[in-house]
Design a protein around this nucleic acid. Structure first.
Length: 511
RNA sequence: GGCGAGUUCGUCUAGGGGUUAGGACGUCUCUCUUUCACGGAGAAAACACGGGUUCGAUUCCCGUACUCGCUACCA
């Protein structure tokens, strides 16, 4: 059975992929790989009004960046294509017709305006909600209430209509959710959902069932927002005669806001300063750019690891997982039922862990993809700096600021100079520069040795010269150790910086 | 409102009729150290509430509260 597992990630190209969508894709990927099954990418673009240019390409690039490969999809094809619903349009109508023919669906001619009026009338009558259901359909304009002749006439005249599911009046619809267990809903709670729209396109409900059947999908792993409409889908499988082929369902918990109530949104990202999209997104309408995890200096493996544990947990206490380890350990049973609050600090922690695992060379290469990369320095030099930086930064983004002293000489401000006078730096600086320049060959070990003897010979305390040196060399009070800094900058550059500082100190020192 | 689904440290979560309720992030303390970090060692910190069932409930059952989702010719 394992080899037959087929799952799909079916996003709607209405904008950039949300981080919650990435997690859904991830869980589908893990499940597919775990069972040596196939993962399908299917683009659900049945709402022509909500299509956003570039969204599909964005989704594909995001999955690629995350390392979530799929076996069938719009860009790579596959035996059950096409994988865009817009290219499968001719398929859906026959199933809608079949449902009508078998008495499981019907034509409805109510206009949007009529529906709205009925909604209002119901509201005035004290009803809390309008539902096009077993009761309501008797008073609406449809093939159940109109005469056969009139229905034929309307159809023939080209008047707009939709096809609605005919929900049985009094039955219990039940299904087993792999995460939540048995779910039972009475058909009275369901409404006669539109299956086929007046624009000639199917709705999600019809298209998703038809495609999952045709694509031989075995497990539908999707967000919790679909749980409520699953009974309708179950009914559709039954009406279409596909009940034996109905996939298993697993509804994932939602990702919630870091604070307050509701699910995570782009606004939360703006408000708290964290990304909610995997990659940068340029709004085609406004041109506004929103940075993603990639641009903010996250490593894809960190994002994946973080997302994997947001709702799912392994058997043991391991926290750090490579993708292949996740595949090995993954199971639907260990998915938490409750929604998970988004925690950016934890995401940062994961990133830091993965940053530390990368070599300086790798990090330099990654940094080089950012516009702020310090050009004009050898890759070897930058790699040395990165090796130091990776312990001090959680995101590559932070390299810009923390790494700056290694690429720009510090500006010695008046305030800084005063501080130096307090420490009487001028007294020993000349001797220190001499000792430094005399180092031959120059190495970290030699430097450390020199430092020790310098302190010994001068009688100065480490605490009285190191902070000063760091200030003169890097321009910061808190930062890398002086030995690390000097050994990376090199003898010449350090000497030059110190001599420059020395000149600045001179006039005052002579007073 | 109706229906569905949830609810263990601040957060992500483990666990499950009898446990010192475990881990991780964050916080705090100590340590390392020339500073800040990193690293190492610790600490504080949770079973939403009320009823049952039971010798015993955080765990099982029922309510309540709260949260989320659905309630579109959107997905």
């Amino acid at each position: 059975m394992d080899s037959h597992v087929r799952v799909r990630f079916a996003p709607s190209p209405t904008g950039p992929l949300h981080i919650g969508g990435v997690r859904t894709a991830l869980y589908n990927y893990l499940f597919a790989r775990k069972h040596q099954g196939r993962l399908i990418l299917r683009i659900e673009d049945t709402d022509q009004n909500r299509l956003v240019a570039g969204a599909e390409a964005y989704i594909i690039e995001s999955l690629r960046w995350c390392g979530l490969s799929y076996d069938e999809g719009p860009d790579i094809g596959g035996p059950y294509g096409p994988y865009r619903q817009s290219e499968r349009l001719s398929l859906y109508r026959q199933y809608a017709d079949q449902l009508v023919a078998r008495g499981h669906a019907y034509y409805a001619f109510d206009s949007a305006q009529e529906l709205e009026e009925m909604r209002q009338r119901q509201a005035r009558a004290g009803s809390d909600s309008f539902q096009y259901d077993a009761v309501m359909r008797r008073v609406m304009k449809n093939s159940l209430t109109l005469s056969t002749a009139e229905v034929q006439q309307r159809l023939a005249s080209g008047a707009p209509y939709v096809i609605r599911a005919l929900i049985p009046e009094d039955i219990e619809v039940r299904f087993t959710d792999l995460i939540r267990g048995e779910v039972v809903v009475h058909s009275r709670q369901l409404d006669d959902k539109v299956l086929f729209k007046s624009d000639g396109w199917p709705t999600y409900h019809l298209a998703n069932v038809v495609d999952d059947y045709l694509m031989k999908v075995t497990h539908v792993i999707r967000g919790e927002e679909w749980l409520s409409s699953t009974p309708l889908h179950v009914l559709l499988y039954r009406f279409l005669g596909w009940e034996q082929h109905m996939p298993h369902f697993a509804h994932l918990p939602l990702i919630l806001k870091p604070e307050g109530t509701g699910k995570l949104s782009k606004r939360d990202g703006d408000k708290w300063g964290f990304p909610v999209f995997p990659l940068a997104w340029t709004d085609p309408e406004t041109g506004q750019i929103t940075l993603g995890y990639r641009e903010r200096g996250f490593l894809p493996e960190a994002v994946i690891n973080f997302l994997a544990l947001l709702g799912w947990h392994p058997t043991g206490n391991q926290e750090l997982f490579e993708l292949y380890e996740l595949v090995h350990d993954f199971s639907l049973e260990h998915i938490h039922k409750g929604g998970a609050r988004f925690d950016f600090d934890k995401a940062r922690w994961f990133n830091h862990e993965y940053l530390k695992r990368r070599s300086g060379e790798e990090l330099a290469a990654l940094w080089a993809q950012r516009p702020s990369y310090p050009h004009g320095f050898s890759r070897t030099y930058v790699a040395q700096v990165c090796e130091l930086l990776k312990h001090r930064c959680s995101l590559i983004e932070e390299f810009d600021e923390v790494g700056r002293p290694f690429f720009e000489r510090p500006v010695l401000t008046a305030e800084l100079k005063n501080k130096l006078h307090e420490h009487q730096a001028a007294v020993w600086l000349t001797a220190f520069i001499e000792a430094l320049m005399a180092l031959e060959p120059f190495s970290k070990e030699a430097l450390e040795h020199m430092m020790k003897s310098f302190l010994k010979n001068s009688g100065l305390k480490a605490g009285s010269i190191f902070p000063v040196l760091r200030l003169l060399i890097l321009g910061v009070e808190q930062g890398p150790s002086v030995v690390d800094a000097i050994s990376i900058l090199g003898k010449e550059e350090t000497g030059a910086r110190l001599q420059h500082a020395q000149k600045m100190l001179q006039p005052v020192a002579e007073n």
